[in-house]
């Protein structure tokens, strides 16, 4: 525990916290623009050039809105719920290696806050805790729409968590380690060594359950505007709602980083592209995929989600694990 180590870790935490809070704001702008172009609209255009300052305007609005707690709500739980979502989203990032190692003035920096040897499990587990945010928010609000949103949260967590676990089990069996750095180094041989070629089924399953984990559109049943007003977030406004929002976007980035590192070669050099830029390209491709899916797919119903997770995805994941095991033994 040298002083340099402590300072380095605190610096990394501050950078991750600041960067991804800002990126969450910027991602809302990108989302609006991408959705608008896909629907042949212009999107935000008035605030700043091409509407780029819309992010700032939204931020000012969120911060200065009245802080409001409904009378029938359970106040402590109501206040703590958004914090859980935002905090766990950033805690999950602690075990993700974002970039390859680099040196500044002879001091080697590892761009990972804490390299624990069960990194992958840790990230998945902590992200699952994030679902307590919507659950507690819905149950503490004292509102029927919120309660329905909370009930749907339980349904969603219990459905997708099994699929997430089983889908990453197959790549972990191939690599033989739960550390994300080991998984990344396993694929260092170039594009042909990427795990997506040996585990295509696991990749698709992981993406689908990742969409469910971040409440993105096909599985956006927690705050389905057309059915339950705004679900768990009905009674929230201002910065409390903003924290749910930051948590959701930070989770999107976490899932994108995980998918890039586990299946698409992580931060290894890609042909002539250096590793740090390669992983950024992959991550932003996945973010774009999130938005693309939102524009292209309708919502599913809760019972369809359960049907999909338990009757389709889970058997496929189990079969995938068994086949991987047989291939490994041979």
């Amino acid at each position: 525990m040298s002083g340099a180590y402590v300072i380095e870790t605190i610096l990394k935490i501050l950078i991750v916290l600041g960067l991804f809070s800002a990126l969450a704001g910027f991602a809302t702008y990108v989302e609006r623009k991408v959705l608008a172009f896909m629907q042949r609209r212009l999107g935000p255009m008035h605030v700043g050039p091409y509407g780029i300052l819309q992010v700032v305007a939204d931020g000012i609005k969120l911060f200065t809105k009245e802080d409001f707690i409904p009378q029938g709500a359970v106040k402590p739980i109501f206040k703590i719920a958004p914090v859980i979502t935002a905090a766990t989203a950033f805690m999950a990032m602690a075990a993700i290696p974002m970039f390859p190692e680099f040196t500044i003035n002879g001091y080697t920096v590892k761009p990972i806050i804490s390299d624990i040897n069960v990194g992958l499990l840790y990230v998945v587990g902590v992200m699952a805790i994030g679902m307590y945010g919507p659950l507690l928010a819905g149950m503490a609000s004292g509102n029927k729409w919120s309660l329905l949103g909370a009930a749907r949260t339980v349904v969603q967590l219990l459905s997708f968590e099994v699929v997430t676990g089983l889908s990453i089990l197959a790549p972990v069996m191939l690599v033989g380690s739960l550390s994300l750095i080991d998984i990344n180094n396993y694929q260092s041989g170039g594009v042909s060594h990427w795990l997506i070629w040996t585990q295509p089924v696991a990749f698709i399953l992981f993406l689908i359950s990742g969409y469910a984990e971040t409440n993105r559109t096909p599985f956006d049943i927690l705050e389905h505007e057309a059915e339950i007003v705004s679900g768990y977030a009905t009674e929230y406004s201002g910065m409390r709602w903003g924290m749910f929002f930051i948590g959701e976007y930070a989770n999107m980035f976490t899932i994108s980083f995980l998918a890039s590192i586990i299946f698409l070669g992580g931060f290894n050099d890609l042909w002539f592209i250096p590793g740090a830029i390669a992983i950024l390209i992959k991550v932003f491709f996945f973010i774009f995929l999130f938005l693309w899916t939102r524009a292209a797919w309708p919502h599913v119903r809760p019972d369809q989600l359960m049907w999909l997770c338990w009757k389709v995805l889970m058997p496929i994941a189990v079969i995938n694990v068994v086949i991987t095991g047989i291939v490994l033994m041979i």
């Binding site: 840790y122 998945v124 902590v126 679902m131 307590y132 967590l157 219990l158 968590e161």
Partner: peptide
């Protein structure tokens, strides 16, 4: 411990 009890308490 985290993963198991997240799901269990959620139920």
């Amino acid at each position: 411990q985290i993963i198991v009890y997240t799901g269990a308490v959620m139920a």
